[in-house]
Amino acid sequence: MNAVTRDQRERIIALLGDASADPGVRAVVLTATGRGFCAGADLRGAPASGERVPGDVARTIRLGAQRLIGAVLDCEKPVIAAVNGTAAGIGAHLAFACDLVLAAESARFIEVFVRRGLVPDGGGAYLLPRLVGPQRAKELMFFGDALPAADARTMGLVNRVVAAEELEKTAREWAERLARGPTRALALTKQLVNASLDADRASAFAAEAAAQEINMATRDANEGVASFVERRTPRYEGR
């Protein structure tokens, strides 16, 4: 069920960092093999409570789950989650951190922490209220019930629900469409939208103006304007 191990986490973080730095990468799809998307963190190697030193847990969360979610939010390329099955705990938060979320009809999202007597981690208490509001976030986290893909879409957690056999095809179509777009403009747009949730109007407007200033120096912005004037389809390079 793809429980996240330390090695898997570090590999995903590294791949997302590489994607940001590589102009040849224009979009990212995060998906899984097997019948589950991600069952949460792999707890088999967790130390017993008597073996912990105060500060160990906070450090582990900060350097582990929070870094993973931060890597998705900070990736400078659009990230699509293609959720093929159950996404529980950090697995659900990994999907919710993505820019666009596709889900198979059989997918489920579970805030499993309460079932284990745990507090949500991996940015869950940050992400969920911003996506669905505090009351619904509390309902999901307090009860830990499985949320079917169709209900997740109704709540705004999922962009589209498709048949299982259509998931990979749809994810590829979306990724290819994004890859043909103005990559730097998309990166700046992602940054503006994510930051707006924590910013006042003056800060958001200042960030918008700065993003426009940066973007207008890109080749793609010049190509977009030129193609409009010349009445042709733009050919973006991601630069």
Rank of each mutant, 00 (worst) to 15 (best):
E76F: 01
D145Q: 13
D74R: 01
A21H: 07
L140P: 02
Q66V: 07
P148W: 00
Q135W: 01
L73C: 07
A19R: 04
L63S: 12
I61N: 14
A150T: 13
P129D: 02
K77F: 08
R26V: 14
D74N: 04
Q135M: 14
A46L: 06
L102S: 06
G70D: 15
G24W: 10
V83R: 10
P134E: 01
A95C: 13
F143K: 11
A149D: 02
L16C: 01
A14L: 10
F143G: 04
L15A: 15
L30Q: 07
A150D: 13
Q135T: 02
V119L: 10
E111W: 12
G122V: 14
V25I: 14
S106P: 00
A103F: 12
I61G: 09
R59V: 03
T31D: 12
A150H: 14
V132R: 00
A58D: 08
L147R: 03
D121G: 07
R67Y: 09
A71S: 15
G123A: 02
L131P: 04
A19H: 05
N84A: 06
V119S: 09
V132P: 01
G70F: 14
A21K: 10
L16F: 02
F109T: 12
M141C: 05
P47I: 07
L102F: 08
N84I: 10
H93Y: 11
T31C: 10
M141I: 04
V28S: 08
D74Q: 07
A152V: 08
P23R: 02
R35G: 13
A103N: 14
